[in-house]
Design a protein around this nucleic acid. Sequence first.
DNA 1: GCGATTCTGGACTGCATAGTCCAAAGTATG
DNA 2: CATACTTTGGACTATGCAGTCCAGAATCGC
Lengths: 202, 202
Amino acid sequence: MSPQGLTAKGAATRERIVVAAADHVLTHGTAGTSLDAIGVATSTSRSQLFHYFPEGKAELVRAIVACQGERVLDAQRPELDRLDSWASWKRWRDSVVAHYTANSGEHGCPIGSLAGQAAASDPQLRADIAAYFESWRGHLRAGVQRMRAAGLLRRGADPDTLATSLLAAVQGGLVLAQARGDLTPLGEALDAALAGLRSYAS
Amino acid sequence: MSPQGLTAKGAATRERIVVAAADHVLTHGTAGTSLDAIGVATSTSRSQLFHYFPEGKAELVRAIVACQGERVLDAQRPELDRLDSWASWKRWRDSVVAHYTANSGEHGCPIGSLAGQAAASDPQLRADIAAYFESWRGHLRAGVQRMRAAGLLRRGADPDTLATSLLAAVQGGLVLAQARGDLTPLGEALDAALAGLRSYAS
DNA sequence: GCGATTCTGGACTGCATAGTCCAAAGTATG
DNA sequence: CATACTTTGGACTATGCAGTCCAGAATCGC
């Protein structure tokens, strides 16, 4: 049994619930996702949801964020972990765009959308989302630092704010893309942010 | 009487509902805002809501977007309308940050948050939000064009994509700010985007 | 195999909410 | 002042939803 006292079968069911619920929440929003809908999507009954997520919907949504956050970050690997050349940044950019392109039909929307919904309602969820962004931003910052250490960027390039602006470009591009129903703003925003980074090239 | 057959009194009531509802929706989200809550906030009864917004909640939310969109754009004036020098861009940047700083407590969240909630649920609302972004982006694009016409930017500066990247920086900065509960990402993202613009200076 | 624990199904409760309806009060216009 | 129209109040219904409960099936530890 796993640490939480879960059978292999139980863990599988839990996983199945999270994955299916993630798809539903990311397309319909937290408010637009009922426990019933999750039930029919996963062929599970009411009691299982509360068995695996005793605190109810809020806990489930948090699990979704954790799951989906990992998915999104994984989609950027291995580039995200070894940003150390201009070519690697370009590859990273492409992997981000490719990931959202592939999943645009089902869940066109990222976790950022949840931030808006969670802002006031669930502080715990907001904190989880903030941590997720911070992790993502940390990878980008490390990349900028590597570039600077390698002498590819000038000293004036501040890894912290550059990482913020890169992540903001991704999230802002996604917001615009979602409103327009077309992903091109994401690519444009990313290109501009990378151009900004390149303006610090030494 | 006004075009829609509204008495002065009626128009005032309608306005009162929209304004109060806007505050509530922007802090609690559309799902977190019940018609009852709007009722108590504005001291109006159920029937008035449906009298002024026969299609119900969806129509009300659309009115809120129109109202709030105007508010946000107005907060950026007069700078937004006459972006034609580096100093004016800086002033614009400050007005954006100042606006969200002033309103961070009440409605920390912008219309962009609604895009996520509206994506699947209400296509009409999504279209309204897209139009709003397009209007905002149009002002920025005009500003870039003015800069180029004045010889302050090189020919390589594409007004269209630069406007997109600037707006994406605002929206992305707001998403991060919302998650973190702190507006600094907005300022940093905007500064980076403006630095990107400045890299095209001639 | 057997007892304890985990897993699953489905019915049930209680509540919050969107939307309807009708009748009364107010307000224009001639 | 009279009539038609707009505005307002509040009760009423429908429904959909989160969360509870209990009993039965499967599975694990020994």
